[in-house]
Amino acid sequence: MIPSTFDYVKAGSVDEAVAALAEAGDDAKVLGGGQSLLPVLRLRLNAPTVIVDVSGVDEMRTVADEGGSLLIGAAVTTYEVMHHDAIKASVPLLAQAAGLVADPAIRHRGTFGGSCAHADPAGDLPTVARALDAEFVIAGPGGRRTVGASGFFVDYFTTAVQPDEVLVAVRVPKLDGWGAHYEKFHRTAQAWAIVGVAAAVKVEGGTITGARVALTNMGPSPVRASSVESALVGGPATQEAISAAAQSAADGTSPTSDTHAQADFREHLARVLTARAVAKAAGI
C-alpha cells in the first residue's frame, strides 16, 4: 500500500520533462494521471527513483484539429476524451471506448496517452489506437519522432517510448462516414477486458468498402485482425457475411491464459465478439 521513496519533478513543458528524464537516468517514470502507475507503485511492483509529472504540461493537455486528424495530447484524460466534441464527432470509436475504461473516478484522472504508454494487453484504448492506425508523437533528447501504432506497441507493458522519452500526443485519423463500435467483454463492470474488439467499417450501397478491426487481450499487444478486414472489404454488409469474415478473427493471435479465461476460450470469444462488433459498427 505504500510506495518506495522517489524524487518528484513537476515538468512545466515537454523540454523540461525530457531534461528531467535525462538527468534521472534509467529509473525514472513519467506520471500523467497516475491511474496505472500508482497501483504499480503501491504494490511495489516497480520502484522508480524519480517521477516526472507531465500532467501540467499545457501542450499535452490539448486536442488540436489538424484537418484529417486530431492530435490528442497524451495527458488529456479519459473523461475528456469521452466528452470532447471533436472526438465524439470524428472519432466516436475512441469516445465510446473511453467510456468503458475502468470506472468514472479512474476516468477523471487517467489519460489516453498514459493508457497507451502503459500498454497493458487488456487496455481498451491501445486497441482503438491500433484499429485507427494512430500515430504517436514521442519527444526525447534528440528531438521528436513519430511512430505508427503498429510499431508503437512492442510487447507486454512495453512500447517504443524509451526510458529517456516522453509520449507527447497521439494523432488519430478522423473516420468521417464510418460506423464504429468497441465491444468489451468482461466479467464485472469494473474488470479488465477478457477480450475486446474495436471495429470501424465504411458501408457504401450495402457493400463494406473499408474495415478496421483490432483486438484487445489477444496477445502481448493489440492485434490487428487483418484477415477479417480483407474478408469484409468488398463483401455485403450482412450478418452472414460478417459472421463468416469473423471466423478468422483469432488467426495469428497469441492470447494468454489466466484466471478469467484460457487461450482457447479467448480465441472463441474473439470470433463471436468480432462478428458482433462489426455488425454493430455496420449498423445491423
Binding site: L38, R42, Y79, A105, H108, R109
Partner: peptide, 16 residues
Amino acid sequence: LVDGRSVKSCNMLAVQ
C-alpha cells in the same frame, strides 16, 4: 472530489 470530480484518493499523490 477533486475540483468537483470524483477521484480515488489512494490513487493520487498528495503532491498532485
